[in-house]
Structure formats: C-alpha cells, structure tokens
Nucleic acid binder design. Sequence first.
DNA 1: CAGTGGTCTAGACCACCGT
DNA 2: CGGTGGTCTAGACCACTGT
Lengths: 262, 262
Amino acid sequence: MPVIPSGALGALDPTSDRAVFRQIADQLREAIDKGRFSEGDKLPSETELVEHYGVSRMTVRNSLSVLQGEGLVFSEHGKGVFVRPRPPVRRLASDRFARRHREQGKSAFTVEADAAGSHPTVDNLEVKEERPSQDIATRLGGPRRVLARHRRYLLDGRPVEFATSYLPLDIARGTQIAEPNPGPGGIYARLEELGHRLDHFEEEIRARMPAPSEVRTLRLAAGVPVIHLIRTAFDTGGRAVEVCDTVMAADAYVLAYQLPAT
Amino acid sequence: MPVIPSGALGALDPTSDRAVFRQIADQLREAIDKGRFSEGDKLPSETELVEHYGVSRMTVRNSLSVLQGEGLVFSEHGKGVFVRPRPPVRRLASDRFARRHREQGKSAFTVEADAAGSHPTVDNLEVKEERPSQDIATRLGGPRRVLARHRRYLLDGRPVEFATSYLPLDIARGTQIAEPNPGPGGIYARLEELGHRLDHFEEEIRARMPAPSEVRTLRLAAGVPVIHLIRTAFDTGGRAVEVCDTVMAADAYVLAYQLPAT
DNA sequence: CAGTGGTCTAGACCACCGT
DNA sequence: CGGTGGTCTAGACCACTGT
C-alpha cells in the first residue's frame, strides 16, 4: 500500500546529471520546506521510499543522511525519521552581566531562564585548581595555575551549554569563589567585593561542528553546530580577572549585542 | 603493500559494542588530533583502509563520512581524502562600524582585509527595490517595499560571506545609497549626510548548518556551519534606518564584542 | 593507464519499537 | 509479532586525477 501522501513526493528525473540520492534528498527537503511535512512529522519509512522511487535501500538511506547532516531531520531507531522541530531559543542580551542585574542576587542564567518561564538547572559542578591551557593562560596574563569552575546548564532538563570559568589563584584562592556555591550575584559579585570592580567584558564568538565529547555532553542531534564563546572580564585596573569558556548548542541560542556607533 | 604509516592506526575491537565504522572513525580522528596526520595530509585511501581493517568498502566510506560531517576532512574526487586545514579567520571587532573608521572613506570590509594583508573583493552586487520578508519589515517598522543591496564578499578569491542591506524607501530612494557604489565610507556615511546620525547598532547572531543554496554561494565544505548575523542600525531619533542580513562561513570568522560592565 | 573517490545494487542480520 | 532504522557485505560501474 502506498502510504506516501499523494503529491508530496514526485518522480526521479533519469535524464538528470544529479545523483539519485540527491534528487530524493531535494524532494524531501522541498516537501519539508513547503510544509507538506511539518515539525515532528514522520517521513515515509525507508521501505516506502524504496518502493516509491524504485531504488535500493542504501540509496534512500544516503538521501536521509544528507538531510540529517543539514539538521533537517532526526531518526529514532525502530520508530522512523522525523522532521526536527525548532527548539525554543534562549536570547543572550549584551547587558546580561550589567551590575544592575547582578545586584539583584541571582545568576545571569537563572534570571533569564525564569524570565522566559523555563526551569533552569546547573549540573556537573566542579571547582578545582588546574594548569590552564596556553590560550587561557595568555588571556589571564600567564599564570601557571588557575582556579577552574566547570559546570553544565540545562533548561527544562535539556543540556544547552557547558562552561568553565578560569580565575587567577591570587584572586580566587581561599575566597567564596573557590566554593561550589559562590553566593548571591555569582562570582562577579564576589570579584567586586574583593576590590576588582569590573570595567568591561570582551567576548569572542566562533561556530563549528561539535567534537564527539561535546555531542555527548549537550546531547546534540546530528547537524547541530556549537557556538563557542570566550569571555574575558577586565577590572577597572585593566587586569583580566576571569576567562569564561562556553560551548553552547547552537539551536538553543541567539546572541544579541548592542554596539555604539561612535 | 601496506601503505598506512606504521602505528598510525590500530586494530578493531571485535568485542566492542561500538559499531565498526565508528571505531574506524575514532581511530582516524585520534590520529588527526594527535598530529599523525597533519593539515592537508592525505589519509590512507579507501582501498588501503579496507585492507587494513578487513572490512567492506561501504563501512570505510561510512567512517569517512562521519569525519566529513565533523568538518575534520574533505575529499577530492580522484585524489583522496585530506585533513582539512584551518583557514585563516577574519576577526570582526565590535568597533568596526565606529565613525572614526568610516570617516577614512573605506568600507569596513576593505579596511579590515587590507589590515590583514588579504585581497578583498565584492561580488554579485545587486541593488533594487523589493518587498521585504515579514521579519525584515518588522525590524524596519513595517514598510511595504524597501531598497535592498545584495552583495558577496571574497577574501583572496574565497567567498566568505554574503549580505543584504535593507533600507526604507523614504530614506534611500533617489540617493547615492540606491547606486551600486554608495561612495566613500559606504551607506552609513551617506545616511549620516542625509541627516540620520547613527546612534547604535543591534546585532543578533545565530549559528546553523547551511542550506544548499548557501553551500553553493559560499562554496562551503561539508561540516562547515554558517554564522547568521542580523544587524539593525538606529539613528539618534531611535528609528531603524537599515537592517543588514549577513551569512558567513563559520570557519572564516571570529566575532569579537566588547561589553560594558555597568 | 592505474588509482582514487562517487554512486548504486541486492541482499543479510540485528536491535529497537509498538501492538 | 511486524515494522522500523542500524550495520555490514561483496560486488558493480562510473568520473575524475595523475603519470
């Protein structure tokens, strides 16, 4: 029985130079783009596509793997291949570290999540002294060892980012910053109490495909890149007092910045 | 003859639950990470890997496609599979639209490229009036039609980004902004001459896998995401006077922002 | 020309899912 | 249990590359 919605998918063009698996991928992609399959919908099964197009199963699978690589669909073993829904995105505003927010005593992540009606969680918290990578050391002015605060953030149970903050030992050792819970307002509030009044932050943003370990940590679907953000905090003396290295699931974020025109 | 560098790749673990093609991909990835294959190096051919591991060719190809999806390698028909080199990245500083740069008469792209010793080119320039998408219209305050300036940027011959600027017709129509060459300092200089003194910009950043048309336009390799940047320029009256929609090859860029701590 | 990757076939067995 | 996707085999022919 032909279970493919009538008209949803056309026929192959045998005269075309385009590879068969690409033609099939094109037709499926177009059907998704035009809403003939909606978010969460199940695509025709591999067997159905094999019958519809009269090709071998490997060819069909090749087509589907193209769409997976583009992040358009995901597969579930024993169930089917589905159109990937666009998850809700978290918007990071450029004033998210403004003192006025900090002074209300909550962390930036928690404040935003609450505002968006989501349930935030922090996970895998680990605080320890480490030897920093060359890059981190350079940004902090070259210390041999640093305090590292590792953690993972989840939104409604979904891991969306993991991050590590690095701080010079001469600033952080023995303070509340070296405790798992740094207290109200987070480590930036503690830094200011310790006399390091914050002046500005610098952020560097890259995007790339995730390493396998990042796929596991963020439970990333195929075809989802990561945003790699490195933020350095400077005090009013011009010293770099913290570097925060963050990897985010790109489908969960939009970053917003405001730039002066002057 | 075994042409695989001795010790570069190990043997399969038949007792492992991990799929054979994943084990092979893991070993190749590790060999690349550890520098046993360097940037630009050719990996062992599919035939050599088939012989080394004693598996079928499709299994080997499956392994290689995993690495391609991660952006670690690229293939050239008839030549081989190679370790993908990290291309030089272009750094976009958050002050790149500062008035002091604009007043020197060059566009932001040209100034930066020259500074980096690269040869910049602009391509596929097209200026016309259009009906804006819902999103663009909303950002500009809801005009029915806008002036659109499409173009593509190349660095040393490589396409790295394409962009479209949208401006309200009541501002741009009939001015030099509607000409292919907007003159020294670019459209922002013209906007200020027209009385729209710029106050600030807002930028929104997303990362995702490219659509097929973006792969073509930017000649993207497999496993390279794009950075999607939407910038809105506001004049001192608080009006949005331009929206620039930019898609960048993510492997060619690092974005840098400076945020106040106040 | 021989060697490379690109495409495709026609099977096979397995693990997972829901009924 | 039947249907689904996950893995793998052992071929085949092709197009592209370099010598």
